[in-house]
């Protein structure tokens, strides 16, 4: 059995899986640190089951952990069997490092943009004097950057 060096399909698979896993880890971590401005669901999420009509309420903490579970576990599961599924295909170490950094950055940027858009109205009246990530406990990333860098320069 010969070993092929990485190809674009393997790299794409790797990148997407890392991206998905990073989204989940950021949500779980942000929920744990109460960085509500970084969450996709900072309030209580109510789910109604049909046809029974049964209701289920999830706190932001539970929702974030659930989101992490459904993103991180399948991605890691796929990596767990990667060599068995792709026994003749590997991604070189340096390329793997580059892909991981790129996918993590993409996951981080996506989280910042999506959470800022989702929470724009919910957190718009909040004020904070906190600096750095700590500010995201009360406001979104867009609001933080806007207030510090854009509004101040006007």
């Amino acid at each position: 059995m010969s070993i092929e060096t990485s190809n674009s399909v393997l790299s794409l698979e790797y990148g997407i899986l890392v991206f998905v896993a990073v989204l989940g880890v950021i949500q779980a971590a942000a929920a744990n640190a109460s960085l509500r401005g970084l969450l996709f669901a900072p309030g209580t999420v109510r789910i109604r089951f049909f046809p029974s009509g049964r209701r289920w309420a999830l706190t932001y903490l539970h929702f974030s952990y659930l989101f992490a579970a459904v993103t991180v576990l399948p991605a890691l599961g796929y990596f767990f069997v990667w060599n068995s599924h792709n026994a003749t295909g590997i991604i070189q170490g340096s390329e793997q490092a580059g892909l991981f950094v790129l996918s993590t950055a993409a996951g981080g940027i996506f989280s910042l943009i999506a959470s800022s858009l989702i929470n724009q109205w919910r957190l718009q009246n909040n004020q904070t004097e906190a600096k750095g990530l700590e500010a995201l406990k009360d406001i979104t990333w867009f609001q933080a950057v806007w207030r510090r860098w854009v509004r101040r320069s006007r």
Partner: peptide
């Protein structure tokens, strides 16, 4: 022992 699993975890 997978090439990717533990490093990524």
């Amino acid at each position: 022992a997978d090439d990717y699993f533990m490093i990524i975890a």
